[in-house]
Design a protein around this nucleic acid. Structure first.
Lengths: 215, 215
DNA sequence: TGAAGGATTGAAGGATGATTCAATACTACC
DNA sequence: GGTAGTATTGAATCATCCTTCAATCCTTCA
């Protein structure tokens, strides 16, 4: 019985799979999910289109995996930055917003794909999971702030969702590869500062004056 | 030269066109834009699929028209309710939020289609216009509030966008025909009250206590 | 009523991409 | 090298809808 699955073959298969995922990820980061066509992914990975189907059941599942990996990396980074900001709730909220918004503005196309691009229901389901995770972070912050008396009394779930919404809607104009930005002309940093102040007020936190003097 | 275009024929054509639009609108309100397939629209309107193309250049244009009509009706209603709330900025903000959120929750599927459903670029462009219009309303309110001393000093554009985002993100869980709502269990009215309070705080407006005693 | 010409039909044609699969190329082991 | 079995290829096939268009039906007006 010649030919057996061996370490070498397993490793090669793993590499193939990874290279397909990396190719898809690169395409998504550059052209969005719509640009990640099976043939383009295969081309980019240097394989035939057919091979994609020995590594993934179908395109949707592949894209959902790409979404999961990219989104979870973003989420981890944001989580860590938030946690690293220390014990003060207000400072953690600040770090959360700045990390989330800052990263989105630095990788606009990817951020747009992850946050707003129209996607298939399977990928949308994945998005819902991550959206929920961000809301959870915000919700915990709010709860914490209420408990320690740093924030006003409020419904943590609603305020968490509202905060995520406030941040992302403020960014959407900048991220959308089409539409014009109503906030055009403002530097990114200014916008982020304004969002931070908005959210602090919304949660009833004491204002943090940014280093720059306010307009 | 028999057969001339006449009042009767013109009227009938107008009716045909309208019935196609109504059919499409009904389908969108029930199944979203994805459910408004050309054949389904034609069936619902009681015509052949081919006929659709003597009244509209293509499906996208028809759907963009449907979007425009539905969205502008929503916008008008919200605008009027806001204006009708009187001269007090805080009260107008309150009316704006309650009208927007209340209507969305009453017509969830339509609201979801208009606000969040993945659509073609042409329809998305239409959505951008209306999104911008809502932000404009909020932005004006903010500017007004700042001028009259009712709101804190802030960037009206950013705060306008953030406010729209806060409202819609709080609703998204309820509107999405798929995903579960993290705010499940809360009655709509409670959520709206919480959103109102959130936004008032965010803009630095004096709190408005709702008639109901807060939780 | 009948002829001219617009309105309507719906099956065929296209477009776009995902997916399959028979053929071919490799790999591992003797 | 030979062979059993796996990996890879990529052209053909499918699937889904939108869009077209030759044939047919309807209106209008003399």
């Amino acid at each position: 019985m010649p030919y057996r699955e061996t370490d070498a073959t397993r490793r090669r298969a793993e590499e193939r799979r990874t290279s397909l995922l990396m190719a898809a990820r690169a395409l998504v980061a550059r052209h969005g999910f719509a640009g990640a066509k099976v043939s383009a992914i295969a081309d980019t990975a240097g394989t035939s289109t057919g091979l994609v189907y020995s590594y993934f059941d179908n395109r949707d599942e592949l894209l959902a995996t790409v979404f999961r990996e990219s989104a979870s990396q973003e989420l981890d980074t944001t989580r860590q930055a938030t946690a690293a900001a220390g014990p003060d709730v207000t400072g953690r909220l600040d770090a959360f917003i700045r990390t989330f918004a800052g990263r989105a503005l630095r990788g606009r196309r990817l951020a747009w794909a992850l946050l707003f691009e129209p996607v298939s229901p399977l990928v949308e389901a994945e998005r819902l999971v991550y959206r929920r995770a961000y809301i959870d972070i915000a919700e915990h912050l709010v709860r914490d702030g209420i408990d320690t008396g740093a924030f006003a009394a409020q419904h943590p779930g609603v305020s968490g969702a509202a905060t995520i919404g406030a941040i992302s809607e403020s960014l959407i104009g900048r991220l959308n590869p089409l539409g014009h930005d109503s906030l055009d002309g403002l530097p990114d940093e200014t916008i982020i500062d304004d969002i931070v102040r908005y959210c602090h007020r919304a949660l009833g936190a004491p204002a943090i004056e940014p280093k720059e003097t306010p307009r």
